[in-house]
Each structure stands twice: as structure tokens, then as C-alpha cells.
């Protein structure tokens, strides 16, 4: 099935994903699969958060479904979704030519630099819940932010050494730009000339409507609060056993539950800070546990 047209330009949303995967696989990245949990951004995937730590080399790319409950618009806004896709690349240590590699990936996507104005505009990245920050840019193509480009300096409050380069492509927005579509729901999900073409809307519109109602109206806040506390307690219990990644799963859960509570509007400005701090405390402990690798070492001993 043709997913790319002449010159390799993708013809569909999935064509874009396939192009990016192939491109970064050729640069030595492992093609990972999405993490099987609800996360707010691709950075939460353990392939980034945990692997950015420690001295080992690590090169990976993957698509990560990301959820921002507050961005739900009941399927009515052509540019905003509460569930969307990020394409994430992490390369550790950051290669000296990472900017060039990134620009080549745009060429692979069919963006001809001779016709467009591509720029790196200061945008430092920070994730308060992950205790992570880095310096970098938003990459602009004709004024549109097509990617986030970050050199990780700290994750979980721990200095990154060596430093990873993290690239995040917002897939829907990028696809709309490349495929010249003004409404996300009109994006061709697969090749529009194929035997069974589907649009992005046909695949996801119903989910956007339903989840918007869930996020804003029907998610049971008492249950969410209880689940938040459970996840927090479970995370700490697992940490006491030195089980870093299972504990980190609970930290991810707590983070998503917090986002849902926030969307339901039951968290005041002041409480917000304390919730963020609670998740960050978990994230830091998980990152420390990951580096300590205590459980395996004790079993081996």
C-alpha cells in the first residue's frame, strides 16, 4: 500500500508516522511502541524518563498517545484534542549533528527547506511533575511550531550525564500542515486512494466527544481522588522494595489522575501546587530507584 507519494512525501497521517519511524530507525534509533498507560506527553514513556538517566547510550523513537483532559472540545474545535499523538525521539548522548538530523527528518516528511522558513526559537522545556528541565527551542516552519527540541539537563531532579537530545513532533498539527488540511478531523488517516480510506475524524471524533464529556462532566471526582491516593501509596510501597519501573507506573497514574481532577475543576490554584509537588516527589524517587537498581542487585546477591 502506498503511504508516501512522489519524493517520499507522506499522503496520510499514518504515512507520516511510518516515514518518521523509518527515518529515525535508519539513524540507529530503536523503534519502540507506545507505553500502555495514560500519559500527558511522550516524555512520560519510561523509554525517555528513565532511559535519559545513567551513563548508558540510548537511542529510541516511538509514537505516544497523549492525553490532556483539559484540552477536550467535544470534537468541535478543528485544532484541539484531548487525545493526540506525539512522535518522540531520544538520542543519548546527543549527537553533534542532531540539528542536521532533525532537519533531514523534515525533508523526509516532504518539507523542502528551499521553500520554507525554518527557525529555532528559544523555548526552554520544563516538566514540573517530572522534576525535569532542559534547554532548547521550538522549531518553526513558516511560523508554525512543528517540533520541540530539548537538551535534557535534569530528570527526576537528577543531572543527566551524558545529555540526551529529545525531539517531539506534534503529529496531528504536522500532518495538517504537510497535507494542507484545515480541520484535524478531515485528515486522511490512511492513503485516501486506498481500498478502505478513513479520516482522522472517522477514527477518533466519537472518542473526542465521549472523553470530553467524561473529562469535564462525568468522571467521578471522589473515585479519582481515592485512586490518586491509592496510586501514591502503591508507588511508595513498590519503591520500598526497589521496584523502580512498577513504582513509576503508579507515578504516571497519579499524574494522569491529577490531570483529570484538574479538568473537572475541583483543584484550586493553591492545591494545584501541592498536587504537582506530590507527583514530583514520586517521580524523583522512581528515578533514583531506577539508577540504584536495588531489587536486581539484591536478588543476584
Amino acid at each position: 500500500m502506498a503511504e508516501t507519494g512522489t519524493g517520499g512525501k507522506p499522503l496520510s497521517f499514518q504515512g507520516l508516522i511510518l516515514t518518521l519511524q523509518r527515518f529515525w530507525a535508519e539513524q540507529g534509533c530503536l523503534v519502540m511502541q507506545p507505553y500502555d498507560m495514560e500519559v500527558g506527553a511522550g516524555t512520560f514513556h519510561p523509554a525517555t524518563t528513565l532511559r535519559a538517566l545513567g551513563p548508558d547510550s540510548w537511542n529510541a523513537c516511538y509514537v505516544q498517545p497523549s492525553r490532556r483532559p483539559k484540552d477536550g472540545r467535544y470534537g468541535e474545535n478543528p485544532n484541539r484534542l484531548q487525545h493526540y499523538y506525539q512522535f518522540q525521539v531520544i538520542m543519548k548522548p546527543s549527537p553533534a549533528n542532531i540539528q542536521d538530523l532533525y532537519l533531514q527528518s523534515l525533508v523526509a516528511l516532504g518539507i523542502d527547506p528551499a521553500l520554507h522558513d525554518i527557525r529555532f526559537v528559544e523555548d526552554d522545556w520544563e516538566s514540573p511533575t517530572l522534576g525535569a528541565w532542559g534547554l532548547g527551542w521550538e522549531v518553526w516552519c513558516d511560523g508554525m511550531e512543528v517540533s520541540q527540541f530539548t537538551y535534557f539537563q535534569q530528570v527526576g531532579g537528577i543531572e543527566c550525564n551524558p545529555v540526551s537530545a529529545e525531539l517531539t513532533y506534534g503529529l496531528e498539527r504536522l500532518a495538517m500542515y504537510i497535507l494542507d488540511v484545515n480541520n484535524v478531523y478531515d485528515l486522511p488517516y490512511n492513503d485516501p486512494t486506498s481500498r478502505a480510506p478513513k479520516t482522522y475524524g472517522e477514527v477518533f471524533h466519537r472518542a473526542e466527544v465521549e472523553y470530553s464529556a467524561h473529562n469535564f462532566e462525568f468522571a467521578n471526582t471522589d473515585t479519582l481522588l481515592r485512586h490518586f491516593q491509592d496510586a501514591e501509596a502503591e508507588c511508595q510501597a513498590l519503591l520500598s522494595r526497589g521496584l523502580a519501573q512498577p513504582a513509576y507506573d503508579q507515578c504516571i497514574k497519579a499524574s494522569h489522575l491529577f490531570n483529570l481532577l484538574d479538568a473537572r475543576g475541583v483543584i484550586s490554584v493553591v492545591e494545584r501546587q501541592s498536587y504537582i509537588l506530590r507527583v514530583r516527589t514520586l517521580a524523583k524517587a522512581c528515578c533514583e530507584a531506577w539508577l540504584a537498581d536495588r531489587f536486581r542487585k539484591e536478588r543476584a546477591a
Binding site: P93, S94, P95, A96, D124, G134, L135, Y151, Q153, C160, N161, P162, V163, A165
Partner: peptide, 16 residues
């Protein structure tokens, strides 16, 4: 005002 490390270097600069 803000500096960073990159790759496996220790040297800090505004960007690589």
C-alpha cells in the same frame, strides 16, 4: 543567563 551541557561533555554553554 542560562547554560547547558550537551553530548557527553562537561563544558557549559548557552547551546552547543
Amino acid at each position: 543567563p542560562k547554560s547547558m551541557r550537551w553530548g557527553a561533555n562537561q563544558f557549559r554553554w548557552v547551546r552547543p
